[in-house]
Nucleic acid binder design. Structure first.
Lengths: 168, 168
DNA sequence: CTGTATTTTCAAAATATTTTGAAAGTTATC
DNA sequence: GATAACTTTCAAAATATTTTGAAAATACAG
């Protein structure tokens, strides 16, 4: 397979992949494009490569910056802004985990804390089922939260080798 | 907080949570409703509780069954079909992981295998950047794949206690 | 300052997804 | 095998999301 075709396939499937994870196609494609480009690109480069409008590129680049996956690069002597993606995939994964944990897991856990204190007689099977479900989710969620914290702080080698040890 | 309000909140936030994970709101809400109900429910029960149409309930229930999260229950002497969700959260998580791994991770890994064999001189920095990115993702993806396999087979206690050990 | 290059914004248009509801299909009962 | 109870389907409508593009804002160079 030629590089051009391989790049296209990578970008397109990274885009499709993203949509399964609540990320819009263009955002995922821009990320993919920046990942496989050794040098930073401008908004115009991205518009041209992906055939999307300026506004679209601008908004999604901003979002990628919010996620901490892309950074603005200013090249000396150049007026335009360039953009470049973090290339170390372990860092990328950690950054995504960190953000989603903050945006989704943590708020969910604090809600569950409140919900577990629901009023009512635990001998009522509706109350019992509710509390059991909520506390089951909360317990597992708390564990996940801790494990992810560990992962976020970890070096790739340390984490992977610990995971591998579990297979022994 | 009263049970009624707590149930509402749980259902609504489980729905919002789902939308961040590529699951539609109604599907997540039906799942939530079944999780907190001690007894199985009919399509009509669900329609009434969530205020959604029959067709919508029917389609999303089917999807939940495909995901292995809900099962049809036939009560003796009853004509209607009842539905009930798996209540063990560890099993629920494993089931979701198993399905998403099959639907998303595995196809991605086989694509990456192909893409890594792209033609071209590795001294060309575009070729090099492409291969480096693809092989980085592939390597980490393969590791995730193995770890998830382990998790899918594991008992909750075994898995959690191994995770806890990492903290020592 | 002034003019120009560049970036940002955002209302409207395009597209995609979800929901509805009525009709068709199925299954059980008598 | 006719009727009634229930389930499934799916085209059309409603809703939500994404994209566009042109105007406004900003930044820079002379």
């Amino acid at each position: 397979m030629k590089l051009t075709e391989a790049r296209q396939q990578f970008i397109s499937s990274w885009g499709a992949f993203g949509t399964h994870w609540g990320i819009n196609r263009t955002m995922a494609q821009i990320h993919a494009l920046l990942l496989i480009n050794p040098d930073p690109l401008t908004q115009d480069d991205i518009m041209e490569e992906l055939n999307v409008s300026r506004g679209n590129v601008n908004m999604n680049i901003r979002e990628l910056i919010n996620w901490g996956l892309v950074e603005r690069v200013l090249l000396p002597g150049e007026r335009k802004e360039y953009f470049s993606a973090e290339k170390d995939i372990w860092k990328v994964v950690k950054q995504i985990v960190k953000e989603r944990k903050k945006r989704e897991l943590e708020p969910m856990l604090s809600l569950l804390d409140k919900l577990e204190e629901v009023e009512g007689d635990k001998r009522d099977k509706n109350v019992k089922a509710f509390i059991d479900t909520v506390s089951g989710i909360r317990k597992l969620g708390k564990q996940a939260d801790k494990t992810l914290d560990l992962m976020i702080k970890a070096e790739e080698n340390w984490f992977v080798s610990n995971m591998v040890k579990l297979f022994k």
